[in-house]
Write a protein that binds this DNA or RNA. Structure first.
Length: 186
DNA sequence: TGCACGATGAAC
DNA sequence: TTCATCGTGCAC
């Protein structure tokens, strides 16, 4: 059972940049009705908290950003540009309001269509706002260690689409697996 | 109640 | 480079 390899709460209750890096290579799992969709995480971005001007939590606690302010190991799913969903995992202690955006995945099982981009991977994996706030230490939506431990070369880059965030725009908080062909942008 | 805009993706 | 499309947050 893949649930035996599921990440526990304490994995998420750590520094967000570290969680973003360690999520690379992990398997994102969505029990979508009778179908178990599995994909390997290959690209992430860290959003550190209210002091990070690129983070949604920088505008304070609002109905939308509520999951970010909640306990670690929960999903934060929101709609962007009126048509695309973005999937994040909440990190660090409750109230810290940090999260990791999953930007690209590589299909492993029951995932069809393109997955190189936050909106595309949500569509391919059947993730939408119904899953907002979902506990990732559960059976419907979770992240699990891959069957084999592998050595990865990780690339660090500035985050995508946050040019408005002043000095925070240039921080190296985007991470991806070097050479992977599912990366959203080089 | 109105309005500017976005952690995107696709077309041109 | 432009545009589709609409929820969110904040101004009025």
């Amino acid at each position: 059972m893949i649930t035996a390899r599921r990440l526990r709460r304490r994995f998420y209750d750590r520094e967000t940049g570290l969680v973003a890096r360690e999520l690379l290579g992990m398997h994102l799992v969505h029990r979508d009705g009778d179908i178990l969709r599995v994909a390997r995480i290959v690209e992430t971005e860290a959003y550190l908290g209210p002091h990070d001007l690129a983070a949604h939590s920088a505008r304070g606690l609002t109905p939308r950003t509520q999951p970010m302010f909640g306990p670690p190991g929960h999903a934060y799913v929101y709609l962007i540009y009126g048509m695309h969903h973005c999937f994040n995992v909440v990190t660090e202690a409750e109230g810290h309001a940090a999260a990791v955006l999953v930007r690209a995945v590589e299909p492993v099982a029951n995932v069809a269509g393109r997955t190189a981009g936050p909106g595309l991977l949500c569509r391919a994996m059947g993730i939408d706002r119904r899953l907002n706030g979902r506990d990732l230490v559960g059976d419907e939506l979770f992240i699990a260690r891959p069957p084999r431990r592998e050595r990865l070369v990780i690339v660090r880059r500035p985050r995508i689409g946050v040019d408005y965030a002043g000095t925070w725009a240039s921080r190296l908080l985007r991470f991806y697996i070097k050479g992977n062909r599912f990366i959203s942008r080089l």
